[in-house]
Computed example of a mutant assay.
Amino acid sequence: MSTHTARPHDHDHDHDHAPAPAASCGGCCAHEAAPLRAATAAAPGQLLLRIPDMDCPVEENQIRAALATFGAIEQLKFDLPARALAISVPAEAWPGVVSAIQAAGFATETLSAPLPADTGRQALRRETLRLVAALVIAAGAELLDLLAPATPILQALGMGLAALAIALAGFSVLRKGLAA
């Protein structure tokens, strides 16, 4: 069941801030939040929250004020119709960000999960190993061309090694090399 408390605030609009219906109503109520749109989907590693009480710019400003002290926040993306907020902030700051929003009087539902801490380091390690392997293979192809006799078999082997190096390095590196 949703815990929604009405909070008074100073602005006029034509909807009330009555308690939200239970989640079991199946979306039949007109005042239910809109479903999350593709534009609201969190990027990998981004905190995505559903904030049932947030439906107007005044509440958006209250949340912005509650998060003003977090220097680690890179971006806030509000989707008022969906009552969602996507926050670009390191995963270790998520609990503090959620606590600050809740301390401002807003219930939250976390809709995304943080990336494992090793993901970035592992990806960088794999990328580095791939590029080093490409460099070693390319150097081998060049040495083969310089030191081996010019026979069709050795030339084909050198070209095969060069093609493998290009494939490992990626075609963006090839394009940059050709442009240079």
Rank of each mutant, 00 (worst) to 15 (best):
P44T: 07
A33I: 00
L49I: 08
I51F: 05
G27W: 06
G27V: 05
G26E: 01
A38P: 03
E32Q: 09
P44D: 10
D53S: 14
H31L: 13
P44A: 11
I51G: 02
G26S: 02
T40Y: 00
I51C: 06
G26D: 02
H15A: 11
R37F: 00
L47T: 01
A23G: 13
L36V: 04
S24Y: 05
A33G: 03
R50W: 10
P21Q: 04
I51Y: 04
L47G: 01
P44L: 05
H17N: 14
H31W: 13
R37H: 05
P19G: 10
D53C: 08
H31S: 10
H17W: 02
A20C: 13
A30Y: 02
L47N: 01
A41F: 03
D16S: 10
C25A: 09
A20I: 00
R50P: 01
A33W: 01
A33D: 11
S24I: 05
P19I: 01
R50K: 12
L48D: 01
C28K: 11
P52M: 09
C29Q: 12
A18I: 06
E32A: 11
H15D: 14
P35C: 09
A41G: 01
P44V: 06
P35W: 11
H15W: 13
A20S: 10
P52C: 11
P35E: 14
T40L: 00
A38D: 15
A18L: 12
E32G: 02
A18C: 04
G45H: 07
A33R: 12
L47C: 06
C25F: 03
L47Y: 04
D53N: 07
A41W: 02
G27K: 11
G27R: 09
A34T: 13
A18V: 09
A18M: 06
A38F: 10
T40A: 15
A30F: 04
A38H: 12
P19R: 12
G26H: 02
A41D: 07
G27C: 11
A20G: 07
D16E: 10
A38N: 11
A43I: 02
Q46F: 01
S24Q: 08
R37A: 13
Q46A: 15
A23Q: 10
G27N: 10
L36W: 00
A23E: 14
D53A: 15
L47F: 03
